[in-house]
Simulated scan of single mutants.
Amino acid sequence: MPTSMPSPSIRIPVELLTQSSFSQFGTVIENPAHSNAPLSQRLPPPAAVSANQGTAIKFIDVTHMLNIYSLAPSKKPARAVMNMFVCAPRDLRPHEPSSSMPSSWGDIDLDDDDDDDGNSDRELFDVPVLERHPFTTQTFVPMGLSQSDRHTQYLVIVAPTLPASASRRHTDRPPPYPTPEIRKERSIKDIFARARPSPFTNEAAPPPSQFSRLNPSQRPKGPGLPDLKNMRAFVATGNQAVTYGAGTWHAPMAVIGDRPIDFVVVQFANGVSIEDCQEIILKPDPKADEGMVVMVDSDSSGKVLVKAGVGSVKAKL
């Protein structure tokens, strides 16, 4: 039975999916020449070389697959797996006034009378569950979706991780992702080690963590619950794939539009269910109208409008 946690009532606007805005959570994989990010927000493109007898450009190391199952309690090794998810469009409910708080990422006016001069339509997507894969990255690659497709897109919904101490207060039980206990050595060497980090060398500082050289999005997130007050939602086009960093809380893929999207999903797995994937059920207050909600604004053609963050200014994607 998945762990549950109380959910506040918050309405979240949609942001443009760019590597800069998503860097806390993982990697956006796209051809730099087709990026929708404003020039001022674009990161340096990955290294590129000529390939296939000069008929192709090879972008090198566009995302980093991470396997940290060595930290899993079972110590069972993982293998690379590739699955396919055929994701049907989600049902959205009509927009209606609410006493929900605006997201801290919004910077927009949530006045119900503000409807972009009647040229846009707002619907609501309820987020009832989040999941994460604590010991592996997970990459979603859409298939058969055009960059210019206005009628079908997908949402990428993510949340930071709370400290473990705060997580325990939320549920009155340990966080859902167990971490291996560090066995304390009681040897003479260990006793002397407390006096100086490296008693048998001239080093004055302990060696750096094996994860210190990794980008923050790639480092283990810890066993804490999701930080719902800082949940964010991004809209992706057909030329964008996304890698969730190991342990990143995210909603199951949410397709918006007229037809399903096929995703090829690449990750590591060891077959231990609690280590491969854990879920958290979001339970709003019984007296509240709603819990965590993403506001999906679209134009007359069905294209999702960006309402927050980079390139918003109520501009079309």
Score class of each variant (00 low, 15 high):
residue 181 E to T: 04
residue 301 S to C: 11
residue 267 Q to G: 09
residue 21 S to M: 10
residue 201 T to F: 08
residue 152 T to L: 10
residue 103 S to I: 03
residue 67 N to P: 11
residue 107 D to P: 02
residue 286 P to V: 01
residue 130 L to M: 09
residue 186 R to I: 11
residue 96 E to F: 13
residue 87 C to W: 01
residue 159 A to D: 02
residue 210 Q to W: 11
residue 291 G to S: 11
residue 172 D to F: 01
residue 255 V to F: 06
residue 215 N to W: 10
residue 90 R to D: 00
residue 298 S to P: 04
residue 293 V to F: 07
residue 290 E to A: 11
residue 302 G to L: 06
residue 217 S to I: 00
residue 108 I to D: 01
residue 152 T to D: 02
residue 133 H to W: 06
residue 300 S to Q: 11
residue 122 R to W: 05
residue 147 Q to S: 12
residue 143 M to N: 07
residue 150 R to T: 02
residue 108 I to K: 03
residue 315 A to K: 15
residue 168 R to Y: 06
residue 208 P to H: 10
residue 68 I to R: 13
residue 297 D to G: 09
residue 103 S to P: 07
residue 69 Y to N: 04
residue 186 R to M: 14
residue 132 R to Y: 05
residue 274 I to N: 11
residue 114 D to R: 05
residue 294 V to E: 00
residue 175 P to A: 00
residue 91 D to A: 15
residue 316 K to A: 14
residue 178 P to G: 01
residue 93 R to Q: 05
residue 302 G to Y: 05
residue 84 M to W: 07
residue 223 P to I: 01
residue 172 D to C: 02
residue 58 K to N: 06
residue 90 R to I: 12
residue 250 H to V: 00
residue 316 K to T: 10
residue 306 V to S: 05
residue 4 S to E: 07
residue 299 D to W: 11
residue 217 S to Y: 02
residue 257 G to V: 06
residue 135 F to T: 08
residue 6 P to Y: 12
residue 200 F to G: 01
residue 6 P to G: 13
residue 49 V to P: 06
residue 214 L to V: 08
residue 35 S to R: 07
residue 165 S to M: 08
residue 186 R to E: 15
residue 117 D to H: 10
residue 273 S to Y: 03
residue 182 I to V: 13
residue 131 E to C: 01
residue 244 Y to Q: 02
residue 6 P to S: 11
residue 84 M to T: 15
residue 231 M to H: 05
residue 301 S to Y: 11
residue 26 G to M: 06
residue 12 I to M: 08
residue 66 L to A: 14
residue 265 V to G: 03
residue 296 V to T: 05
residue 37 A to P: 06
residue 222 G to W: 05
residue 227 D to Y: 07
residue 77 P to M: 00
residue 132 R to G: 05
residue 118 G to N: 08
residue 35 S to I: 04
residue 55 T to V: 06
residue 195 A to V: 13
residue 68 I to E: 00
residue 126 D to C: 12
residue 3 T to K: 07
residue 103 S to Y: 06
